[in-house]
Nucleic acid binder design. Sequence first.
DNA 1: AAAGATTGAGAGGTCAATCTTA
DNA 2: TAAGATTGACCTCTCAATCTTT
Lengths: 156, 156
Amino acid sequence: MVQTQQTPQISEPFLGAWKEFLNAHAAVTDRIEAELSSAGLPPLAWYDVLWALYRAPGRRLRIGELADEVVTIGRSGLSRLVDRIEAAGMLRREAAREDRRGSYAVLTAQGARLLRKMWPVYAAGIEQHFADRLSVDEAASVERILGRVNTAARAY
Amino acid sequence: MVQTQQTPQISEPFLGAWKEFLNAHAAVTDRIEAELSSAGLPPLAWYDVLWALYRAPGRRLRIGELADEVVTIGRSGLSRLVDRIEAAGMLRREAAREDRRGSYAVLTAQGARLLRKMWPVYAAGIEQHFADRLSVDEAASVERILGRVNTAARAY
DNA sequence: AAAGATTGAGAGGTCAATCTTA
DNA sequence: TAAGATTGACCTCTCAATCTTT
């Protein structure tokens, strides 16, 4: 008799790695969010949007391209997030001339300034809660290993 | 002149590790949530609650203890999550006799069955999207390294 | 007054339906 | 008909206020 659907046995090192992975993510991001908030700055999701625009040619991205960059949120959620960031004057929408169905999000000068205010706080959080606990070799290992996890998970 | 507040320079391996860490978390948890949902099962947060109760002596935990176990949610959020799980019959609240301010969440038989239905799907997701991409040595490294991140981040 | 837990108000997210243009 | 993007309805979380008991 063939067993078609058996529960995988995940051995200890893998299960241990998974648990630490989940806990570390929750702990570090919570702490960084709290530090941004204490500094009177918006959440990490804003940083992701502003930074994606900053990197892009012309400081602008189609809404769909922006959604692909901000990996923690879906398209409708992004649409509302862009609403809020636009209302705060940190970006503006611009109709796409080459395809009138679409629009661009364009970083404003104020948005670029906000990005420069957020980075020191964000960077300090990454350093203190994450990087300071790793050696250079360990960081390289984590990058390589989780990079592989990442590629695998997206390959669908 | 003393520089009191300089932006940390985070060198490449650390920044790379941080980016892969965030992306891997988003990718893997999204995929597992989608698989649970496709199987007609509730989200990971339910699993965390049910599993915490299952492990506990008497299959029961004070609400506050439960909140400490479920690290991705705050106390008021947990209160509402417990409402929903209770409404589904997977746990019940019970007044604490030794301290009448408090209450217990107690796993029901139905809750234990749900846990046993969720685990195969969850485990398959961990295996396929995470564990299969790691060697045993790499898993041990991730556990050790992120365990250190974790301890550090919580030590406040 | 403080601790355990819940609740009202509001912020931010999802899914499916919708609108506009291609 | 499909693609880009937004919207309506609804769900879940947070913060601060609240209720009960210590």
